[in-house]
Measured scan of single mutants.
Amino acid sequence: KELVLVLYDYQEKSPREVTVKKGDILTLLNSTNKDWWKVEVDDRQGFIPAAYLKKL
């Protein structure tokens, strides 16, 4: 499984997104879309802008 580091706080703006904090380490589920990556946060799955994440 691939992990990503959150570079900036992000507040979800729709039900398909998730809220994260800078410094969080998340499981990356899908990065095929270059703009929005799907991650897992506390048993929730959702999207975050790829620019907010860095692969570890």
Rank of each mutant, 00 (worst) to 15 (best):
D35W: 15
Y52S: 07
K34G: 13
G46W: 06
L7Q: 04
L3G: 04
L26C: 10
V39M: 01
T32F: 10
D42A: 10
L5I: 13
L5S: 04
G23W: 06
E2L: 11
N30C: 09
G46D: 02
Y10D: 01
K22D: 02
E2F: 11
K54F: 12
T32S: 12
K22G: 07
I25T: 06
Q45R: 10
D42P: 09
D43Y: 10
I25W: 04
F47M: 08
L5P: 00
K21R: 12
S31T: 10
Y10I: 01
K34W: 08
A50C: 08
D43T: 11
T27E: 11
L3F: 15
E40H: 08
K22C: 07
F47G: 02
F47P: 00
K22I: 05
K13M: 11
E12N: 07
K1N: 11
K54Q: 15
L53R: 00
K54V: 14
G46Q: 05
E17T: 06
G46H: 07
E12V: 07
Y52W: 07
V18R: 02
K21P: 01
I25R: 05
T19S: 14
E17M: 04
A50W: 02
A50R: 13
Y10H: 04
G46E: 07
K38H: 10
K13P: 04
L56V: 11
D42R: 10
A51H: 15
K34M: 11
E40S: 10
Y10Q: 01
L5A: 06
P49A: 03
N33H: 12
V20D: 00
K38L: 15
K1G: 10
R44K: 14
D42K: 12
K1D: 08
P15A: 13
Q45G: 06
G23S: 03
V41W: 07
S14A: 10
L53N: 01
D35S: 12
Y10V: 01
G46P: 03
Y10R: 03
L3Q: 13
L7W: 02
V4Y: 06
L53Q: 01
R44Y: 06
W36P: 01
L5H: 04
W36H: 04
L29E: 03
R16A: 12
Y8K: 12
T32C: 09
Q45I: 14
K13H: 09
K1S: 12
V4C: 09
T19K: 04
L56W: 08
R44T: 06
L5N: 02
K22Q: 11
D24Q: 14
E40T: 08
Y52A: 12
K1E: 09
R44A: 06
Q45H: 10
D35K: 15
K55A: 07
A50I: 05
Q11H: 14
K38F: 15
K22E: 08
L29N: 03
N30A: 10
Y8F: 15
Y8C: 09
W37F: 05
T27A: 11
D42T: 09
L26K: 02
N33M: 09
A50L: 02
A50T: 07
D35E: 14
Y10T: 01
K55R: 14
G23D: 06
L26H: 10
L3A: 06
D9S: 10
Y52V: 14
D35Q: 12
V41D: 07
E12Y: 06
D42C: 10
V6Q: 00
R16T: 14
K38G: 05
V4P: 00
K22S: 09
L5K: 07
K22R: 14
T32P: 04
D9Q: 04
K1R: 12
A51D: 11
F47W: 15
Y8G: 07
L56A: 05
W37Q: 01
D9K: 03
L28W: 01
K21S: 11
V39D: 00
I48E: 00
K55I: 12
T27M: 12
I25S: 02
L3E: 07
L56Q: 06
V6L: 01
K22V: 06
K13I: 07
S31V: 05
K54T: 12
V18S: 02
N30T: 10
K55H: 09
V6N: 00
L53H: 00
L7T: 04
G23R: 02
L56R: 03
E12A: 15
K22M: 08
E17Q: 12
P15I: 10
S31P: 05
Y8S: 11
K21Q: 10
N33Y: 08
N33V: 05
V6E: 00
I25L: 07
K38R: 11
Y10E: 00
V6Y: 00
L28T: 01
K1I: 15
E2T: 13
K54N: 06
D43I: 08
L28Q: 00
E17K: 05
D42G: 15
K38P: 01
D42S: 13
L28I: 05
T19H: 05
K21D: 03
D35Y: 14
E2M: 14
W36Y: 11
D43W: 10
A50H: 04
A51L: 13
R44V: 08
K22N: 05
K21F: 11
W37Y: 05
L26G: 13
L7V: 07
N30G: 07
Q11V: 13
V4A: 09
V4E: 00
L3M: 11
K54A: 12
T32N: 13
L29A: 04
A50D: 02
G23F: 04
E12H: 07
P15W: 08
V39W: 01
Y8I: 09
Y8N: 11
V41L: 11
D43Q: 12
D35H: 15
E2K: 09
W37C: 03
R16Q: 13
V6R: 00
L26M: 04
K22L: 05
P49C: 04
K38D: 03
A51E: 13
V41R: 11
P49S: 03
R44Q: 07
K55W: 07
L53F: 02
N33P: 05
K22A: 13
E17S: 06
Q45M: 10
V39K: 00
I25Q: 04
Y52F: 14
K38I: 11
K1Y: 15
R44G: 06
Q45W: 09
